[in-house]
């Protein structure tokens, strides 16, 4: 019995908790990509950089507050700075929309042109971020590191495997739940949210109903800015902030959005967890887990690992390609925003 529990704890510690954390970060990112896709109808290649920009401003405000001696221990100061990061990101996307996207919207540019435009914004924002904060790694987490330490868990349960939960993991999952609940409430219960769904569903009919497209687009961008800043900050708190990594996050995020069916917010969230958990599950070495479950003489000699950990990020690309080829509408298709 203890062996089964040990095996489960081992899985929880190395697979489920990190998977849920990373999955929440991807889900929030994918939600942003999906919102833009539903309302503006293009795949936003600049999303990773928007996340990076929001995180950068959160870091700036974190430093500022730390300088003032402000602290909300045991929580990281970054949580206090996050609203300001969100505001800065909102300002950025508003400027971007007014100067760049609005023109192409009014001229009804094709969605490939929108896509290339988003690549342009990726360059510009990427440049701004690297110019302002530099390309190096930034660790901006302060506060208490662990909610539960492996050693404490072992003492508590008497098991030989420990379960550690980092503060950042707890914050990520809780924040993701709150944000997702808010987005669901906004889209399904508020007038503005419903008008956004209507616009995404049928643009012409939305116009006939008196829904103002400019307003829908603006609200969508503001939501996306908030989502991006939150997702970016959570990722940065959990790992670290490095501009290059954020550009690389774009593909797992696209993978999550597409796996869930682009344009479907619930799908995007599910897609985030599917991608994150498979990344870890495919590169996880099951040797010790199996070791607990089978008799000693059958214990495996190899690592029982499907793919080496070097391929961890590649897993999301592989999932992405497989889904695109087999079921491009996504696993949870059928329902749009």
């Amino acid at each position: 019995m203890a062996d089964v529990l040990n095996a489960l704890v081992l899985l929880a510690n190395f697979l489920i908790v990190p998977g849920l954390t990373y999955g929440s970060q991807l889900a929030l990112g994918a939600l942003g990509v999906t919102l833009i896709y539903s309302v503006l109808r293009f795949s936003n290649f600049g999303h990773g950089e928007i996340m990076s920009f929001g995180t950068m401003f959160t870091i700036f405000f974190t430093w500022l507050f730390q300088g003032w001696g402000l602290s909300i221990k045991p929580l990281p100061t970054a949580l206090l700075a996050l609203p300001f990061g969100i505001l800065a990101t909102m300002a950025l996307v508003m400027i971007m929309d007014k100067t760049v996207y609005r023109y192409h919207r009014e001229n009804k540019s094709s969605n490939v042109i929108f896509l290339i435009v988003s690549i342009g914004t990726m360059f510009v924002i990427g440049g701004i971020v690297r110019f302002a904060i530099g390309p190096a790694d930034q660790i901006f987490f302060d506060g208490t590191r662990f909610i539960m330490k492996a050693r404490e868990f072992k003492q508590m349960t008497g098991l030989s495997e420990g379960l550690a939960i980092k503060t950042t993991q707890g914050i990520t999952i809780v924040t993701a739940v709150i944000v997702v609940a808010f987005i669901w409430w906004f889209l399904n219960k508020t007038r503005t949210g419903k008008s956004m769904r209507a616009y995404s569903d049928n643009e012409n009919l939305a116009l006939l109903s008196g829904i103002d497209p400019a307003r829908v687009v603006m609200v969508a961008w503001l939501l996306v800015a908030a989502l991006a800043a939150i997702a970016g900050t959570l990722y940065g708190l959990d790992k670290s902030f490095k501009p290059f990594t954020y550009m690389q996050l774009l593909l797992p995020i696209f993978a999550a959005a597409i796996v869930g069916g682009v344009g479907n917010p619930l799908g995007a969230i599910a897609g985030g967890y599917v991608v994150a958990l498979s990344e870890i599950a495919v590169t996880f070495a099951y040797k010790r887990v199996v070791g607990y479950l089978v008799a000693e003489e059958h214990a495996p000699e190899t690592l029982l690992q499907l793919l080496s950990t070097d391929y961890k990020i590649a897993v999301s690309f592989i999932i992405l390609v497989i889904v695109l080829v087999i079921k491009p509408t996504g696993l949870f298709s059928g329902k749009t925003l």
Binding site: R191, K194, S195, R197, A198, D201, N202, L205, A206, S209, I211, K335, T336, L337
Partner: peptide, 14 residues
Amino acid sequence: NVFTSMTVEENLEM
């Protein structure tokens, strides 16, 4: 001429 993904009531609200 309808918002297919929205409920009947939401269509009327819109």
